[in-house]
């Protein structure tokens, strides 16, 4: 039990270290590398961080039922995103719309 505690504590610190490193990368990325893809890179780093938090801090690792419910929810959000983004991507009225350019 005690060794388990120590091991878990150590893993918490390791995860903290990983997250701090990723946060540091978040900061330097826009001026250091792949600067034309800042948005994508930032979201990618965010996803990696989220993954680590979910798996280790939130103990999702090994949870089958709960894992699937999370996947289902994330899939739904992703689907809503996809459709709404398709809609805005094919926005047909940009030339005449007042929400893209103010009424004169």
């Amino acid at each position: 039990m005690v060794t388990n505690y120590k091991a878990e504590k150590a893993s918490y610190y390791k995860v903290l270290l990983g997250l701090l490193v990723l946060t540091a990368i978040t900061f330097v990325q826009p001026s250091m590398f792949l600067t034309h893809y800042t948005f994508g890179m930032q979201m990618l780093i965010g996803t990696v961080k989220a993954w680590i938090i979910l798996m280790y801090y939130m103990h999702l690792k090994g949870e089958v039922l709960i894992g699937w419910t999370v996947i289902f929810a994330v899939f739904l959000v992703a689907f809503f995103f996809a459709i709404v983004m398709i809609d805005v991507n094919y926005f047909q009225f940009a030339d005449v719309s007042h929400i893209t350019s103010p009424a004169q």
Partner: peptide, 12 residues
């Protein structure tokens, strides 16, 4: 983790 980069970092 997502709020921060989406607001603070995308224009950095």
């Amino acid at each position: 983790v997502f709020v921060f980069p989406y607001f603070y970092m995308i224009g950095a």
